[in-house]
Each structure stands twice: as structure tokens, then as C-alpha cells.
């Protein structure tokens, strides 16, 4: 969900950015992080390691929001900017290296 109206802040309409989450095509906005784009689409479960995990600190301090992005595991999606066409997946466990898309 995005803020519709705010008494102090002004959120200008921004360019839409398409990306994929678990094979589904979603859109975020220019300036979004991966995490804010997912939240705007009401997606809060980002990782699964025995138990579901989501965003906690949003500034890259904790390791709660690690996801697999374009085949790369352990990406802190709270500080990683969204780019067009990104393929974002729920990370299961610790993730494995070597699957990066070149």
C-alpha cells in the first residue's frame, strides 16, 4: 500500500518499474528499494529459514530481509534499489552461491 495523502510530505508520481517476484510480474516505482516495492504490493514475507522472516530495520543493519535477487543470494533488499526486470525470490535458508546471472 502506498500513502495516498500526507500533511507534510509530497510523494510525486514516479516512473513505474516492472520486476518479478516469485515468477509474478509486479510494479514498483523509481526510487524504491526492493523491500519498499514489495511492501507497496502488500508482500511482507521475504525469506524463509525454518520460519518466515520479513523486514526489520530497513537500513541495512540486521540480516532479516535477505532475498535472492537475479540469482544472487543474501541481498539486503531494504537498501538495494529496485531496477527494471529484477528477478526477486524468497530466500530459503542460507542461499547458495554460484547461480548468478551474468
Amino acid at each position: 500500500m502506498r500513502i495516498q495523502q500526507h500533511p507534510i510530505l509530497n510523494f510525486e508520481p514516479a516512473e513505474e518499474i516492472p520486476f518479478y517476484f516469485e515468477g509474478k510480474k509486479l510494479t514498483g516505482k523509481l526510487g524504491d528499494t526492493i523491500a519498499s516495492a514489495l511492501h507497496a504490493n502488500n508482500i511482507r514475507m521475504l525469506r524463509h529459514e525454518h520460519r518466515p522472516r520479513g523486514l526489520f530495520c530497513a537500513i541495512g543493519n540486521c540480516a532479516s530481509c535477505l532475498m535472492e535477487v537475479d540469482g544472487r543470494p543474501n541481498v539486503r533488499v531494504c537498501v538495494e534499489k529496485l531496477r527494471p526486470g529484477m528477478v526477486v525470490k524468497i530466500q530459503k535458508g542460507n542461499g547458495t552461491l554460484g547461480k548468478e546471472e551474468k
Binding site: S36, M45, R51, P52, R53, L55, F56
Partner: peptide
């Protein structure tokens, strides 16, 4: 659980990205 946030995270989501 997803949905438990630090207060700073809630602020960041709302005030920086305009997301609830």
C-alpha cells in the same frame, strides 16, 4: 514474524518511500 518492525524501519518505509 514479518510485520514486526523497528520504529525506524516504519519511519523509513513511510517517510522515505511513501509506503505503509
Amino acid at each position: 514474524l514479518p510485520g514486526v518492525y523497528g520504529a525506524g524501519a516504519v519511519q523509513t518505509l513511510m517517510n522515505l518511500y511513501g509506503v505503509l
